[in-house]
């Protein structure tokens, strides 16, 4: 549903922030994008709904070119982005007003806006904060408001750009839980992160370095690739451990590396068998 062909982009300094990017994203896919600081992930994210237009190449969203200004509103209805800093994403003074902002821009009638706001408030569990200022909420709740604000646009695809990097681990897990639920509802997910552990459920991972895609493949293959260390990325400890055990002939299935308790269970099973 989203296709990037040969996309390059340079900021005003002239140095390309991303170059020759080719990505094809199918409907309902869950894609992880990783890479060290400054590798061009955020620049790439801004291309998915036309916030940045490619300097070279083209970005197609459901057959619409993001350079076509008359299509932009349509494209933004389809692809929503949740950014890193919750504070600079709040537009409304109350949570309700913030959630209404998108649909108001789409010129939907008031009843429809109210219906969407109610539904999303319930879905994300923010009913009690309806008339609160988003600023009085904790970081995790704040990021949930930011997510909710894009959900009222009813997008088919959601891009998350390091949404958990300013949150404590528990709040990060809360946001991730919502991401997982959205994926189950057949939304297309593009999840950008530094924390590779968060990508356990992704179908596919794209690794960026210095503006290029340097590695791409199924999640388990990418996360167990020793090349990651050279790119300044630390593989999740459990997956790393599983990889090392494999070299000693102990096979831990991929699904079991999602949490320490699963891992421990698997090891006990193996012991009991022998």
């Amino acid at each position: 549903m989203i296709r990037l062909e040969n996309v390059s982009y340079s900021y005003s300094d002239g140095k390309p922030a991303i170059r020759d990017i080719y990505i094809e994203i199918r409907k309902g896919e869950y894609i992880g994008i990783i890479g060290r600081n400054g590798s061009g992930k955020s620049t790439l994210a801004l291309h998915f709904n036309g916030l940045l237009k490619p300097g070279k190449g083209k970005v197609m969203v459901k057959g619409m070119d993001t350079r076509d200004i008359s299509m932009l509103q349509e494209i933004r209805k389809i692809v929503g982005i949740v950014f890193q800093n919750p504070e600079t994403q709040f537009i409304g003074r109350t949570v309700e007003e913030d959630l209404a902002f998108g649909p108001e821009n789409l010129c939907l009638p008031p009843e429809e806006i109210r219906r969407r706001v109610e539904r999303v408030l319930a879905e994300i569990g923010l009913e009690n904060y309806r008339y609160h200022s988003p600023k009085t909420l904790s970081g995790g709740q704040g990021q949930c408001v930011a997510l909710a604000g894009t959900l009222t646009m009813e997008p088919e695809c959601l891009v998350f750009d390091e949404v958990s990097s300013m949150l404590d681990p528990d709040s990060g897990k809360l946001v991730l839980k919502h991401v997982k639920k959205l994926h189950e509802k057949e939304k297309t997910i593009i999840y950008i992160t530094h924390n590779l552990e968060e990508l356990h459920d992704a179908d596919r991972i794209i690794v960026m370095d210095r503006g290029r895609i340097v590695l791409e493949g199924k999640t388990e293959n990418v996360l167990s690739n020793p090349f990651l260390l050279d790119l300044g990325l630390t593989p999740p400890p459990l997956m790393d451990l599983a990889e090392r055990l494999k070299k000693h002939g102990v096979m831990i299935p991929w699904e079991k590396t999602s949490s320490p308790s699963n891992f421990a269970e698997e090891i006990c099973q193996l012991f009991l068998k022998t």
Partner: peptide
């Protein structure tokens, strides 16, 4: 920087500075 981020977030949610409706009837 904050203002730039805010502007991106607004644009991403379809803000065009033109006619819009309101949740309040």
């Amino acid at each position: 920087r904050d203002a730039e981020e805010l502007a991106l977030a607004m644009e991403s949610r379809g803000y065009q500075g033109t006619r819009r409706t309101s949740i309040h009837e």
